[in-house]
Design a protein around this nucleic acid. Structure first.
Lengths: 158, 158
DNA sequence: AATAATGATTACAAAATTATAACTATTATC
DNA sequence: GATAATAGTTATAATTTTGTAATCATTATT
């Protein structure tokens, strides 16, 4: 049990350590190439993964206060990248989903993102890249699983 | 080669996917518990890992414009968490390093960070946690190695 | 039907981050 | 020794993100 707690702490430390590195790799590389803010890009990503989310759902996923979600979505709508869908059974709820243009745009954004990363990672050999693939997928799946269980509101005004 | 590029793209996608989740877990949890901004926390983290960095070095590590590094360090100095050291051989250079108080404070911040994460991860069994440990460490080491090779200035005003 | 709760919006303010240009001090180069 | 380059700072503005309160429309509860 002691060992297990130590390992959890190391996981936390390792993951916290890579956040600024990842931000540097992905966000900064995109800033000059698009007029979308990081959070609108995250919003596109969340919608690409979940295909359909409520306003509150977006806020929970990205830990963004609800009032700001409205602003983010307004921006994306003005760019024609997402659309609102009303729920017939509960008319308070508004679903957001990518438009075709949004899907295309996000695909292009991912392309630009991976392009930069490709030259960075290409210094490593095939085995290492494969292991990076396995590890990143494992962490992604685990964190997704974990995130599901903490959907509840998390930040003020949410 | 094609396969390798596909794997690199998947790595990029997986890592980009987890950024908002990690931000949510670590940053948001700390916001109420400290008066330090995320970037000052990252600065502490970078100094904890590298023990000594120049102003430009901090800017490169965190992709923060140089003028803003001055502000971040000023804040940390006013809290007594870091100190400036001048380089005898080149008096333009200023090294920043943690004070004892800074080391203590960062240790405490890590404790709060891992505490929250612990309850989140505790839903998983020992084997899964161990694999998370191995994967997170592998990714951390690889990204560190990668980051070293792209020290060069990266953002405006840097 | 009145009341409470929920999902989303509006309006506003504060804090944090990013971007630029100009400047000082110091070192390197020619 | 003049010029260029580097490390860091000052000053300023714009953008992005975060926080809070009040409000509207709709649904749930009693």
């Amino acid at each position: 049990m002691e060992k297990q707690n130590n390992e959890i702490d190391s996981v936390a430390e390792n993951l916290a350590h890579i956040v600024p590195i990842l931000k540097r790799i992905f966000i900064k590389g995109l800033r000059t190439k698009t007029n979308l803010s990081p959070q609108t890009l995250y919003t596109l990503g969340a919608l690409s993964y979940h295909s359909k989310l409520t306003m509150s759902g977006i806020g929970n996923h990205l830990s963004v206060p609800k009032p700001h979600v409205t602003a983010l979505v307004d921006k994306l709508i003005s760019e024609g990248l997402v659309e609102r869908l009303s729920d017939e059974r509960d008319r308070r709820i508004i679903y957001i989903q990518l438009t075709d243009k949004g899907k295309e745009t996000f695909k292009e954004i991912k392309r630009m993102m991976t392009e930069a990363f490709r030259s960075d990672l290409s210094m490593f050999d095939e085995a290492k890249i494969h292991k990076m693939y396995e590890c990143s997928l494992y962490i992604r799946d685990t964190l997704d699983e974990m995130a599901k269980s903490l959907q509840a509101g998390c930040c003020s005004g949410n």
